[in-house]
């Protein structure tokens, strides 16, 4: 769970030791690597484009969780509430005749961020465990509400008849998922860049300060609750956009979007990739989705068992998830 080495290297004054502090060009290349791979995958695996879109969406959801859990230190078990709200917002807009994807995405993000802002006081007011229960309770309520309101949401049958217009008026969402993947990837990239800016800013530093010692942060003049509420709303907006991407690219919304399973899987991805490092969220989402796919093909009934083993092994052997592992490898070599 310690991403501190990387943080140190990215801090205002990087020490001159450690393998993380490579010459700049190498570092930039490493940063570009996941994105080059993502674009390369478009050409290399045309038959897997829906899976790749799924990875991009999962990565955005994990990124959202990373902002609130990994950086701000607010733990949540109900993040699917925002994902689902975004999915239904975008889905319903398109079903009701407004299928323009980008405005749908923004509306979904805004709706989720608003819900985040409204519920933040409830989550932050209680202690850590009680706050966790509040997040869980809110997401369960939203799930059941969506289930009950079948006349709007389609209930357990899912939201049908979602018709999304061509992207930018030019690119239709084709059957092979080409547009869907490139669209998801572009949104993920833009929001990743924004997240990087956030965590490197004074705002991001104050979040890390609050996570490390909220009491002292307050004594330094940090308005702790306001800062955390803002972070919670931003993360909620990210999750809402991820949900909207799923609704628009699959032209369907099911109750799964709001499920506890989704909240839990998001956390698993994050822990797998490495908490508190944005690249960890990307890697974790990719590894989890690919493993899910491969394992469930190999043993449809049993795949969670193998996932469990992988998680236990990672938790015991490699703190910091995949990112921690990579960092240690890098240092060993340097």
């Amino acid at each position: 769970m310690r991403a501190s080495d990387r943080r140190r290297a990215e801090g205002p004054e990087a020490p001159s030791t450690g393998g993380v502090n490579r010459p700049r060009p190498t570092r930039q290349l490493l940063e570009a690597l996941p994105w080059l791979a993502a674009v390369g995958a478009y050409f290399a695996f045309p038959e897997y484009l829906p899976l790749l879109s799924g990875i991009a969406i999962a990565a955005l959801f994990a990124l959202s969780l990373d902002l609130i859990v990994g950086y701000a230190g607010v733990v949540t078990l109900g993040h699917a509430a925002f994902f689902g709200l975004g999915a239904y917002t975008a889905g319903l807009l398109a079903q009701q005749g407004w299928g323009e994807p980008i405005s749908g995405l923004l509306a979904a993000g805004a709706a989720a961020a608003l819900l985040g802002l409204l519920t933040a006081p409830l989550v932050l007011r209680a202690g850590e465990l009680a706050g966790l229960m509040v997040t869980l309770g809110l997401s369960l309520m939203l799930y059941e509400a969506a289930n009950k309101a079948a006349f709007v949401t389609g209930g357990a049958d899912g939201l049908q008849g979602v018709e999304v217009w061509p992207l930018l008026g030019a690119f239709r969402f084709d059957l092979f998922g080409r547009t869907a993947y490139l669209y998801s990837l572009a949104v993920l990239f833009l929001l990743f860049v924004l997240a990087r800016l956030l965590v490197a800013s004074p705002f991001g530093l104050s979040l890390r300060g609050i996570r490390g010692n909220a009491r002292r942060a307050a004594a330094l003049g940090v308005p702790v609750k306001a800062r955390l509420s803002a972070a919670y709303a931003i993360a909620a907006g990210y999750a809402g956009i991820a949900g909207a991407l799923l609704a628009q690219t699959t032209q369907f919304v099911s109750l799964d979007a709001l499920s506890f399973q989704r909240s839990a899987e998001g956390l698993l991805m994050l822990v797998l990739g490495g908490l508190g490092s944005l690249h960890g969220a990307l890697l974790g989402a990719a590894a989890f989705t690919v493993a899910h796919h491969a394992l469930s093909e190999a043993s449809p009934q049993f795949w969670q068992f193998w996932l469990g083993i992988a998680l236990v092994a990672l938790a015991l052997a490699g703190r910091g998830g995949i990112m921690g592992l990579l960092r240690r490898l890098g240092r060993g070599r340097g």
């Binding site: 310690r2 801090g11 205002p12 530093l205 490390g212 010692n213 003049g221 940090v222």
Partner: peptide, 24 residues
Amino acid sequence: FPELTPLEAVTMALAEREGAGATW
């Protein structure tokens, strides 16, 4: 702040003093 460097911690305090703590 165990996981911040002294420089980061002091910078955080300064940013807050200058009203720049919420700058994102």
